[in-house]
Each structure stands twice: as structure tokens, then as C-alpha cells.
Simulated scan of single mutants.
Amino acid sequence: MDIEALRTFVAVAGTGQFQAAADELGISQQAASKRIAALERHVGATLLVRTSRGSRLSVDGQIFLPHAKKVMATIEQAEHAVRPGHRPLRVDVLNRRISPAQAVYRFYRSHPETDLDAVTLGTRNAAQAAQAVLEGTVDATFRALPADQIPTGISAERLLDEPLELLVGPGHPLADMPRVSPADLHGHRIWIPGIRPGTEWAAFYRSLSEAFGLSIDALGPDFGDEALMDTLADSAELATLVGSGDRYLWPRTHDLRRIPLHDPTPVYPHVLLFRSGDRHPVLTALRDHLRASGPRTPPDVWTPAWSGR
């Protein structure tokens, strides 16, 4: 059924005049007549009867009108729901413990009137997440995606460079260091369970390992963050890498140590991907907030060559 024809029928029924309805809709009277004729052919009934004073509803038209109004009201509600600012902004934050989620949470705390949903797309890689943005599953996602892999229709803004830190237990040889360089990690096993081939974080850690000759692996099952914290606390050999803005909690008795990296400082380049031309006001506010409040990029920064800096 032609929605514009239905809209025209409701307008004519309301004004009682084809010309008045046409003026209201911004079309010609002839166009309005053609729409009504097409609608009547579609439903197989005469809906409007022309008179010397304009038009009136036929018996079938009187029965049809309430249903037509309901359809038009539903369409108006649907259109209103997806207009910028009339629904929550849906942001993929990868994992609720890591820096993008914490940044979005801080944004919400400073803008409590905003309407947004923080979601996670689970195991999807960067290309799949970008496709989800194009399809409208989410409005934006944080990914480390090379510029030459950004799909048409997607805009990208690198807004969250996250410095890495070493996380170790109290028995680790580097546990008492105030800070360490990547060179200091030679010979130490860095365990990051959950790295999956084909993901952007796999590409990042491969580049980091190759650049500094590090031993980074994902061997063994991933039983979650709590199990990783337990293992680090009991080990004098294992270490892992976390973002400086990532939020991990562990029992006080674990006595885990977060040690900044420097000389150079590896940073994970979180890029915000969103649909080109998206005018959602919360997206604009979030981008402004991240530009103003993101972590300060250290002077000795290192990122993979494919990250664009």
C-alpha cells in the first residue's frame, strides 16, 4: 500500500476538500486525485464521494478511516523514534572493563541527561564491527582499524590513545620497579589469554612483539579476568599488559602491581567509528568530550605503523 496515498486520504477526509488537502501536503490537486484513485483501486472500494461542496466519506471510507489514521500515527512514531536525538545512542565499548567503556561511563557521569546504551558486540572483529555500524546495529564502535580498511560510509576519529601498563604479581622480578621500558621485558613471558587470530588486538600485539622482541602469547584457556588475576598473584614469571584506563579489581591479598611503560610508551589506538553524516547530538557531545578529556599522549609514544601515527 502506498503510504503517500494513505496520507492523502487522511488529509482529504480531514479537510473535506481535495485542493485544501493538496495544499497541506504541498502537491497539486491532480496529484492528490491520482493518489486517491490508486488507493481505491488497491483496496477495491470507493472511499471518497465528490460533491458540489467538495468530498465526503463513503460508507467504506468511514470504516477505513480509523485504520488509516492508526497506520499514519504508527509511521509518525517510527519516524520520530529514529530522528537524531530521539533514541539512545548505541555505542559498542568492546569490554566493560577496558578504557572505551570507562571513557563512555565518565562521559555519562558528566552528562547525566544524555540517553545512551553501552553495548558489546562480543567476538566481532574490527571489520565486522564496522559493518554493524553501517547496518545500524550500533551507532559507533571503538576499534583499532587501519585507515585503508575503513569502509565507505564510515567516518573514523582517533580519540583514545591508551598507554599500556605491565601488570604483575608481587613475586615477579619487575614488581618493585616504578616504571619499565619495553626493552626491560625481554625474557619475561607476557600472557594475554583471549587473543583471537584475525582481530585488531591480535594485530596490535603481534606488531608490539615484533617491534621490541617480546614474548607475548595467548596459550591456555581463557577463564576470565578473575582467573587471570589469580594466576598473576601466584606467579613469579607471568605478566600481562593492560591499558592505563582499564578497570580491573582483585583482592587486596593479591598485591598486584601496575607498572607504567616508557621509553617508548606503547599506546593502543582506539578509533571511534561512526556512520558518515550521523547527526545524533549525543554522538557529537561524546566526540567533543573525548577530544577534551582523553588521556594525554606521552611524548615517547609508540603505535604500530598501520595505526597512522
Results as ranks from 00 to 15, higher is better:
194 G>N: 05
173 P>N: 03
127 A>E: 15
216 I>Q: 01
227 A>C: 09
124 R>D: 09
212 F>M: 06
145 L>F: 05
196 R>G: 11
196 R>I: 13
213 G>K: 08
219 L>S: 14
172 H>W: 03
145 L>E: 02
156 A>S: 12
123 T>G: 12
142 F>M: 07
205 Y>C: 03
235 S>Y: 06
136 G>D: 08
139 D>H: 13
228 L>R: 15
124 R>F: 10
184 D>K: 08
225 D>Y: 13
235 S>N: 08
114 T>V: 15
214 L>A: 04
98 I>E: 06
208 L>Y: 00
211 A>F: 05
207 S>M: 08
144 A>K: 00
119 V>H: 03
212 F>G: 04
154 I>E: 02
195 I>L: 04
114 T>C: 12
104 V>W: 01
130 A>N: 04
242 V>S: 03
200 E>R: 07
230 D>P: 09
105 Y>K: 12
143 R>H: 10
169 G>N: 02
184 D>E: 08
122 G>N: 08
132 A>E: 01
232 L>P: 00
234 D>N: 15
237 E>Y: 12
164 L>P: 00
186 H>Q: 14
225 D>A: 15
157 E>A: 12
205 Y>D: 05
102 Q>A: 12
223 F>S: 12
165 E>L: 11
162 E>P: 06
149 Q>N: 13
154 I>R: 00
125 N>W: 01
162 E>N: 13
140 A>M: 01
166 L>Y: 04
184 D>M: 13
191 W>T: 11
190 I>T: 06
176 D>E: 13
168 V>R: 01
150 I>K: 05
227 A>D: 14
170 P>A: 01
99 S>V: 14
224 G>R: 04
170 P>Y: 06
236 A>H: 13
164 L>T: 01
157 E>V: 10
166 L>S: 05
144 A>N: 05
221 P>S: 06
204 F>V: 05
103 A>N: 07
99 S>Y: 14
104 V>C: 09
110 S>F: 12
160 L>V: 08
241 L>H: 04
201 W>K: 15
227 A>M: 12
162 E>L: 06
183 A>R: 14
229 M>N: 11
189 R>G: 11
117 D>E: 14
128 Q>R: 14
224 G>N: 04
117 D>T: 15
229 M>E: 07
140 A>H: 01
106 R>P: 05
136 G>R: 07
114 T>R: 12
203 A>G: 08
206 R>N: 13
132 A>T: 03
238 L>G: 01
148 D>Y: 10
178 P>Q: 06
198 G>R: 12
193 P>G: 05
220 G>L: 06
166 L>H: 03
198 G>L: 08
